[in-house]
Design a protein around this nucleic acid. Structure first.
Lengths: 343, 343
DNA sequence: GGAGTGGGTGGAAGCGCTCTCACGGCGTAC
DNA sequence: GTACGCCGTGAGAGCGCTTCCACCCACTCC
C-alpha cells in the first residue's frame, strides 16, 4: 500500500514513517548517514528505495542556502561560441565535473552590454552558488560586473590586466609557444615568422610573448596579426610573404590561422614543410589532422581545463570564498607539442 | 537605516515592513500586483527598489511547486555537436526565449546510454518544469526515457517512428527539398543527383522524400549517401561521378556535404554551376558563403525554431501538460531558397 | 552500585514564500 | 436608514527540508 497519494512525490516524512524513525534521522541518512546506527540507517535506505524518494531540492535549498547550481556565463562578443570546438570541449569538461559534484549547470547567455543588468540581478539573486566565466577581450565589462555581484567565480583563461586578481585556469600559452618556436629553430629554420592573435586577448599576447622569449631579436617584419579565424590567417600569411619572402617557418597563434596560412602557402607554390615549416596552437583535431599537410601543433587539455575550473570553484566554495589557506590559486596547465607533417 | 543585517539578503517580510503592509500584500505586488490598490502597490515597489529585494527562488519554488527551470538535453551519440553552428543557433534561440519567460536553462549533457539513469533521476526529481530535447537517431533510447519521466518535453526535429506522439518543432525539410530540386529542374537540368544524409535521421529522410516528390522516377544511380560531414559529401560525390558521369546537378542534404561535393567537382575539373549545379541545405553561413562558388541553399530559421520550442513548451506547461484544447500541436517552419552562385 | 560521559535519536523551530480564508470598509439597492 | 455584497487587506498555515537542542540510554569509572 502506497503511503502517498499517487499524484505527489513522497516526502521525507513518508520515508521516516515507513522506516519507523523520526524525520531528523531520515534526513541524516539521506545526507550521508553520519551518526546513525547501522540497522536504522538500513531501514531508512530501504524505505527510500521502496518509495522512490527523491529529496525536494527547493526545500533543501531553502534551509541550506545553497542552490547546488553553478552558472556558466557565456558572453557573445562575436559569434564564436558553441561552434568553437574549443569552447565545446571546455563546457563538456565543466559539465562532467559538475555532475560529479552533484551540481547543476545553468547556462547564462549574455546578449551584450545591454544585458548586463539582467545578469547582475540573476547572480545577485542567489540562484547559483558560483559562476564560471571566460575571459575574452580586455575591455569586457563582464568581469567587473561578476566581481561586484560577489558570486565566487573562476575564469577560463587569464583575465586581462584590468580585472581584479581572480582565480583562473589557463594553459601554458607562453611556454607552449616557446616549445613550438624552439622546435622550428631546432629544425634549422632561420627566418621564423609569427601570425599573432588579437592584441586584446591574453592567450594571443602570451603566445606572442613566448615567440619573443626564444626569438628576442626577431625582425618585426616577421610578425603579422590575425583574429584567430582561417581567413585572417590567410591574409596574415600573404602579408608576411610580401614583407619577408625569405621566411622559412611560421608559428601561428592557433590552428585555424595556421590552416589559412597553409592555404596561401600552397597557392603561392611554397612547399610545406620543405620550404616553409608551419606550427599551430590548440590541436583542434578536426582542423589539425584534416589539414594538408597535417599540422604540427601545440596541444592543450581543453576538457581538463574545464574540469579544473569546476574543481577550483568547489574549493573556493568550500572555503567560504575568502582567501584562506586553501585559497584559490590559479592553475596553469602544461602543453605538449604534437608533431605531424607540417614541421 | 538598513532593516536587514548586512550579511543576508532582504526578505519579503522586510519589504512589507518598510512599505507598511502585510507580507501577503507585498507578495501580491511582487507577483504582478493584481488586486492591490495603486498607492499601496507603489509603496511596496518603492520598498523593493530601496532594499534591492530579490525573491528567494527556493522558497517560492517550494510552495508553487514550480522550478522555473527548463532542461536542455544534449545527447552526444557521436560528436556532431562539435562545431555544429546549427546547434549553437538553436540553443541561442532557446536561451533568449527562456529569458523572456523568466526561466532558467539547465544544461543536461548526456554521456551515452550509461548515463541515462542519472538523467532519469534528475528529470524525475522535479528539478525542472519541462525539457527540450533533440531527435537524433531513430534508435536512440533517450526519447523513451524522457517520456517515462513524465516531464513535459518538446523536441527539436521530428522524432523517429519509434517515439510516441510528442510535440516537436521542425523545419519543412520535405518542402524545402522540393523547392531546391524544382529550382534545379527549372534551370533545365536533367540529371539531378542527390547526396542523402544518414538513413536513421528524419531530417535526412524528409529531404530525400522531397527529392523524390519532384523526381519520382529518379535513377537510383543518382543517389548516394553521406553522413552530413564534408568528407562524406566528397566521397558521395566521387561515387556519383563514377556511377553517373553525365549528371548535371546535385542536391546535397546539407551544406557541409555540398561543400565536400564542390571540392571533388573542382578536382575533377567540373565547373560549377556551368557543368554541374549544386544546391545545399541549412544555409550555414560560414560554409555556404565561404564556399567556392558560394552555395545556393535552403535556409531555415534555426534560432526561430529554438524560440518556438520554448513557446510550445510553455504552452504545454500552462495547460497542465495534458491534451486539452490548447494542446501541443507540433510546428513546421517554412524554408526559403537562397540563391547564390552554385545553382 | 551510583554518578558521569557521550553518542544516538526525536521534537520542534524555522528557512522565505504563496495562498486560503476571514474580516472590515465602502458602495449600492431597497 | 438599514441590509447586502464585494473588493482589498491581513493573519496564518504550511510547502519539505535541515539542524539545534534536549533527552535517553548504555557504558565506564571511581
Amino acid at each position: 500500500m502506497p503511503e502517498q497519494p499517487a499524484g505527489s512525490r513522497p516526502t521525507l516524512e513518508a520515508v521516516a514513517a515507513r522506516a519507523g524513525v523520526s524525520r531528523a534521522t531520515a534526513s541524516r541518512v539521506v545526507n550521508g548517514g553520519a551518526g546513525v546506527r547501522r540497522p536504522l540507517a538500513d531501514k531508512v535506505r530501504e524505505a527510500v528505495e521502496e518509495l522512490g524518494y527523491v529529496p525536494n531540492h527547493a526545500a533543501r535549498s531553502l534551509v541550506t542556502r545553497q542552490s547546488g547550481a553553478v552558472a556558466v556565463i557565456i558572453a557573445e562578443p562575436e559569434f564564436r561560441i558553441f561552434s568553437d570546438p574549443f569552447f565545446e570541449q571546455q563546457v563538456r569538461g565543466i559539465s562532467r565535473e559538475l555532475t560529479a559534484h552533484d551540481s547543476q549547470l545553468v547556462l547564462l547567455w549574455v546578449e551584450g552590454p545591454g544585458d548586463y543588468d539582467r545578469i547582475a540581478r540573476y547572480l545577485g539573486g542567489g540562484h547559483v552558488d558560483g559562476a564560471l566565466a571566460f575571459s575574452l577581450h580586455d575591455d569586457d565589462g563582464l568581469p567587473a560586473l561578476v566581481h561586484r555581484s560577489k558570486v565566487p567565480t573562476v575564469y577560463g583563461g587569464r583575465p586581462g590586466a584590468g580585472a581584479a586578481a581572480v582565480p583562473y585556469v589557463d594553459c601554458d600559452n607562453r611556454g607552449g609557444a616557446r616549445t613550438a618556436v624552439r622546435h622550428l629553430v631546432g629544425l634549422g629554420r632561420e627566418r621564423v615568422a609569427h601570425i599573432a592573435g588579437p592584441a586584446d586577448q591574453t592567450s594571443a599576447i602570451d603566445r606572442a610573448d613566448g615567440y619573443h622569449d626564444v626569438l628576442f631579436d626577431a625582425d618585426p617584419a616577421l610578425t603579422a596579426r590575425g583574429d584567430f579565424t582561417v581567413d585572417s590567417g590567410a591574409r596574415a600569411m600573404a602579408e608576411l610573404l610580401a614583407r619577408a619572402p625569405d621566411l622559412d617557418a611560421v608559428f601561428a597563434a592557433n590552428d585555424l590561422m595556421a590552416a589559412g596560412a597553409l592555404r596561401v602557402l600552397r597557392e603561392r607554390g611554397r612547399r610545406v614543410p620543405e620550404d616553409v615549416a608551419v606550427v599551430g596552437f590548440d590541436d583542434m583535431v578536426t582542423v589539425a589532422e584534416a589539414a594538408d599537410p597535417p599540422l604540427t601543433t601545440v596541444r592543450q587539455d581543453i576538457e581538463g581545463m574545464g574540469r579544473l575550473m569546476v574543481r577550483l570553484l568547489m574549493r573556493v566554495l568550500n572555503h567560504g570564498g575568502d582567501r584562506g589557506p586553501g585559497a584559490p590559486a590559479s592553475v596553469i596547465m602544461p602543453t605538449e607539442l604534437v608533431r605531424r607533417a607540417s614541421a
